[in-house]
Computed example of a mutant assay.
Amino acid sequence: MIQQTQVIMSAPALHFILFAVFASLFFSARCSNQSRKDVALLILGDSLNDAGTNTYLNTTAGYRADIPPYGETFFLLELDITHHFHHPTGRFFDGRLIVDFIAEYAKLPLIPPYLKIKDDEFMGGANFASGGAVALVEDLKMQLKQLEQLEKKLRKEMGSEKSISMDDYVGMAIGNITSVLQGIYKVGGRKFAMIGIGPIGCVPGMRALTRNGACLGEATTLAKLHNIALTSVLTKLETQLHGFEYSYFDFYTSGSERIQYPSKYGFKDAEIACCGLGPYRANLSCGGQRGAKEYSLCHRPKKYVFFDAYHPTGRANRQFAQLMWNGSLSIIRPRNLKALFKN
């Protein structure tokens, strides 16, 4: 990660925009010429930002989204003037990512995966994000598994039966993010945009783990603790690091509002995923190449908050991106991204 940043440091006046859900990163590098042609967006992170990186990696089907129906509502492949069809691009959504919309608002082209770019094709930036690449882990099941492993390790080292608390676990995640922020600051980063954890306990994949389909309490608690700790760290860094500026997007509140009042935001369903299998379509079988070949697909993804068990639809991503770009200070603070990009 640092090596990638150092390579880009050859650009004169470098500015960084960073997005984080655990370790989802998004950079903006700007040369001395302030025209849009001289702005490059460099994106790092997990599946929320993955524009198809995993398609070029030797990963299992569970970490890839290069199969239909992913990409079906936006990405069009034209064979000739009369033949065209929608196709997957490796994004874990039916349409565009949040960062795709941010690039549009900043008057930049769609940012391609770094591994797809040829030497003479660099334009607008590069996307390094890869599904599964996060500060600690990607999904709660893996978090719990690693938590158990860590607990056994600590018991062995400490010689006691003390269990690690959720506060300690969040502390480790925030510690990793803080180190990344400080590292980027050392190589020239001054502007950071952070996405808080959304209502992960209420995604279809978590609802299926409860008896009555309610939100998973442990995941909800984890999200809230994480966000409180993250905002505290950002406030401290702003006072400790000269020139440090940030925007924090309250993903938890904006996501919760759409889950609780879907019709208010143009959605029909916020509990069931558009694509998947089983209760709440929570089985990650979308596309039929992740173990189970059968899956159910809704007719109108834009009416759903979630496209699969863990990822929002393109329409939901557009709404989140709009809030981040020019939303009020109640949801994106202490400044929105439009203001952050201006300087």
Rank of each mutant, 00 (worst) to 15 (best):
Q3Y: 08
M9R: 15
P12V: 01
A13Q: 07
S24D: 11
C31R: 03
L41Q: 12
D46G: 00
N49P: 06
D50E: 04
N58E: 10
T60F: 02
G62E: 11
P68F: 11
T73H: 03
I81K: 15
H86N: 03
I98C: 03
I102C: 06
A106V: 09
K116H: 05
E121Y: 04
E121D: 12
G125P: 04
G125E: 02
N127D: 11
A133P: 01
A133K: 06
L136R: 04
V137Y: 08
E138P: 13
E148N: 13
K153V: 05
L154G: 10
L154D: 05
S160K: 07
S160G: 10
S160T: 15
S163W: 03
I164N: 08
I164R: 04
I164D: 04
D167F: 09
Y169G: 01
V170H: 06
N176G: 12
N176H: 12
T178Q: 11
Q182W: 11
G183F: 06
K186Y: 00
K186Q: 13
G188W: 05
G188V: 11
G198S: 14
A208L: 05
L209Q: 14
R211K: 12
G217A: 05
V233D: 10
E238H: 14
E238D: 13
E245R: 09
Y246D: 05
F249H: 11
Y252Q: 14
S256W: 14
S256H: 07
S256D: 03
E257L: 15
R258C: 10
Q260Y: 14
K264M: 03
I272G: 11
C274Y: 01
L277R: 10
G278L: 12
N283S: 15
C286S: 07
G288S: 04
Y304C: 07
T313G: 14
G314N: 00
A316Y: 04
R318Y: 07
R318L: 05
I332K: 00
R333L: 03
L337T: 14
K338S: 00
